[in-house]
Nucleic acid binder design. Structure first.
Length: 598
RNA sequence: GCGCCCUUAGCUCAGUUGGAUAGAGCAACAGCCUUCUAAGCUGUGGGUCGGUGGUUCGAAUCCACCAGGGCGCGCCA
């Protein structure tokens, strides 16, 4: 037995036995057979629903199938006892040796333990788009959650065997970057000493002066350094926009993206591809896509009904170019062109997703803010239409994060420039705590990020609790090196250890938890829920701390016993394997494991 | 008015894709420090899983309706 996933292994054993009882069992029924950990240890180690799910197809009562399964399974070498239970479960009790045999495998595999070998992910190419913050200013706390969730999801899917491309879509087209350019231009005029006041300048800006934060001051300085006073009138006033707008836009977007990339780097996020909306628009991709949809008969000119119950005051019916998204499950058809004929953001975004489809992915996943929730059905419809249902589109929605300090919510105001930037947050609590904490909630649930709790050194704080467990593991191994000078104690060395002496219940509880790791990776990946990794690590840490603490009451239960080198070595293998799995999990979360608590 | 997401212990949240007697942490109460780190551990109490029906061997989980909370709803991105 050298399977890395004990549950998958036993599932095969059950399926083999089941095939002997019901030779012509349909494949779709077999697919529903599960081997799961039992909730109650009294029920054994694992349970299978095999008899219940196959009863109907086999036209036999579950109890009869279960009884036959018990007969067949009793012969399996891993299984100590099999018995029927409840409505048709078969409970399995494994030999402790079966669990213990996992430790050498974990140590030999290292952090690759839990990687899919032949799971659902194999061969599937996924494009994962996340962050995609507008390049109009520094990243703030709102972007942070999507960045962390997206990045951890990428790691998770990769571990589960998918081939993942991590992508950032730069929204550098449209009205907001024009507003950004005007704001940067104001900083430029200030830099060269304009006589204009802010009010006088703002009065000349189409749509008013937005983006008033200080972060554009360096951009103004940069423009001055490069262009001198050439972008302004001789009186250092506002020149005709066509003489400077593109230049200022280019410089500003480039400067903002430099900042964004630095923010991402500090957060530990590395994306593979940055795609520019502006370049996409310039290439005419949106018109190409509209033409393609037109050829499929999915485009028409029409007038949308006003939204029911809440008609805007300035509503008037206007004909637009519409996409028949209702053919693909959307509620209303969606406009691709505005009434003036220019393309909508949606048209550009369809073009972008068409581009991704063209790059050969089997699945597209967007990590979005929850305020984009209403946007998902139409994108789903568009991807379905464009790929003729060959490519899947999914969205992971991230709910809002409230920052608490001293139990009081921090006020956020972008207009006043007083919002919490990502960089502030990283300086305050550090990358690892930010990443871990962001993953301690389901993405689609609101979360409160308590600055005090994140830094707390108590069990309440999962970051600390998990890191502490790893540090304790490493501490034991360091102490072992002192107690047994010259002993070979690397993971590879320990992987050959005889671990038969590990027969205490707390030890076996911990090993059972380690056995769940591949299964946890698989289920978290297929549910696209990276937060499950955080909860798994918390539970694992709790099991380990419990084992550690037994040594308080009874010194003979401590890991290190100078007079029992063989038994100590077996315990060290368990400790090292625990550390391996914690590291493996932290790697998915993008958190650096610590060697000691300081 | 419509759509999507929520509602689980006093509080903050899990719940292994439909499994057996629903679990953690905090808070409350009761214990444990000449230690490989007590930055912790052990135990006790605490639940009509928002409500009502339905689907089936079996529902916190799926479906319908209702109640409460959040987000969104043509030419913003």
């Amino acid at each position: 037995m050298n399977a890395t996933d004990l549950y998958a292994h036993l599932r095969q054993t059950v399926l083999t036995a089941l095939a002997q009882i019901i030779p012509d069992l349909p494949a779709d029924i077999a697919a529903r057979v599960e081997v799961t950990p039992t909730r109650d240890p009294a029920h054994g180690d694992m349970a299978t629903n095999a008899a219940m799910v196959s009863a109907k197809a086999a036209r036999q009562p579950p109890a009869k199938i279960a009884a036959a399964l018990v007969q067949h399974l009793a012969a399996a070498p891993e299984i100590a006892a099999a018995e029927t239970a409840g409505p048709g479960f078969v409970n399995l009790r494994l030999h402790p040796q079966t669990f213990r045999a996992l430790l050498p495998i974990i140590l030999a595999n290292g952090e690759a333990y839990g990687d899919a070998t032949a799971g659902t992910g194999t061969g599937t190419k996924i494009n994962l788009e996340y962050v995609s913050a507008n390049p109009t200013g520094p990243m703030h706390i709102g972007h942070c959650r999507g960045a962390v969730v997206g990045d951890a999801l990428a790691n998770l899917l990769t571990k589960a065997g998918y081939t993942v491309t991590k992508e950032y879509y730069i929204n550098d087209a449209g009205a907001q970057v024009v507003a950004l350019a005007w704001a940067a231009y104001w900083r430029y005029l200030q830099a060269i000493g304009t006589p204009l006041t802010e009010e006088e300048f703002a009065a000349e800006v189409p749509g008013g002066l937005q983006y008033k934060g200080d972060y554009l001051i360096p951009v103004g300085e940069m423009l001055k350094a490069t262009h001198g006073t050439a972008l302004a009138t001789e009186a250092k006033g506002i020149a005709a926009p066509e003489t400077w707008l593109d230049t200022v836009k280019d410089t500003t977007i480039a400067a903002m993206m430099t900042e964004v990339r630095e923010d991402l780097r500090l957060l530990g996020v590395q994306q593979d591809i940055f795609t520019s909306e502006r370049a996409l628009v310039a290439s005419g991709a949106a018109d190409t896509v509209i033409a393609k949809l037109q050829a499929d008969g999915l485009i028409y000119e029409g007038v949308l009904e006003p939204p029911k119950g809440k008609t805007p005051d300035d509503w008037e019916p206007r004909p637009q170019t519409l996409f028949r998204s209702t053919n693909f499950g959307d509620d209303v058809d969606r406009p691709l062109r505005k009434s003036d004929g220019s393309n909508t953001y949606f048209a550009n975004d369809i073009a972008y997703h068409a581009d991704k489809i063209g790059r050969g992915y089997n699945e597209l996943i967007d990590v979005l803010g929850a305020d984009h929730g209403g946007y998902v059905p139409r994108m789903k419809a568009a991807v379905k239409a464009l790929s003729h249902d060959a490519v899947k589109f999914d969205a992971v929605l991230c709910q809002i994060v409230h920052i608490l300090k001293g139990g009081v919510p921090l006020k956020m105001s972008k207009r006043a420039g007083s919002y919490v930037t990502l960089r502030d947050l990283l300086e305050e609590v550090g990358k690892d705590a930010v990443r871990f904490t962001m993953l301690t909630r389901k993405a689609d649930a609101q979360m409160e990020f308590d600055l005090d709790q994140v830094l707390a050194t108590t069990r309440e704080n999962p970051v600390f609790y998990v890191q502490y467990a790893h540090a304790r593991c490493r501490s034991v191994l360091r102490a072992a090196a002192e107690m047994f000078p010259g002993a070979a104690l690397t993971d590879a060395d320990l992987s050959t250890t005889n671990v038969d002496t590990l027969d205490g219940e707390p030890e076996l509880t911990l090993i059972r938890r380690l056995a769940l790791w591949p299964r946890t990776v698989e289920s978290a990946a297929s549910a696209r829920e990276p937060h499950r990794i955080a909860f798994f690590l918390y539970d694992l840490a709790a099991d380990f701390h419990m084992l550690w603490n037994r040594g308080k009451d009874d010194a003979t239960l401590r890991f290190l016993q100078a007079d029992q080198p063989a038994a100590t070595r077996a315990r060290l293998a368990l400790v090292a394997a625990t550390a391996v799995v914690i590291r493996s999990g932290l790697a998915v979360m993008g958190v650096t494991p610590v060697e000691e608590m300081r």
